[in-house]
Amino acid sequence: MEVLKQIIENINYIGALALFVIGLYTVVTHSNLIKRIIGINIMGTGVFYFFVSIGNVVGGNPPIVDLDNGNLIYINPLPSGLILTGIVVVVSITVYSLSLVVRIYETYGTIDQDEIAKIIDQETFDD
């Protein structure tokens, strides 16, 4: 029961870690480049989720100045602010890697990493 309670209390951290691991698994196992990028995105989501959930205060309000009642328990706005930056970074990396994938597809005719490696092997042996 204790364990269950612990899990429920920390469900957001566990979820974040699960997302991170799922993303990592995708990156490791898939040879499709697009899927790898998706994996990176999932990893990123996991980290951001973790970061945002750090700032959570139980019973806290959104950090907007509320003029009417004097409830001053806000959740920590800083992680959210930081994660905004993180999201921008991951978006740009995703876009950049997608454009690279487009180029790779043009030059190699495939987006499968193993096949690309085979083509590169072939070329180095031909040298």
Partner: peptide, 12 residues
């Protein structure tokens, strides 16, 4: 090439 291919695996 083998090592290069298994980049993320090594990381994990």
């Amino acid at each position: 090439n083998l090592i290069i291919k298994s980049d993320a695996l090594i990381y994990t």
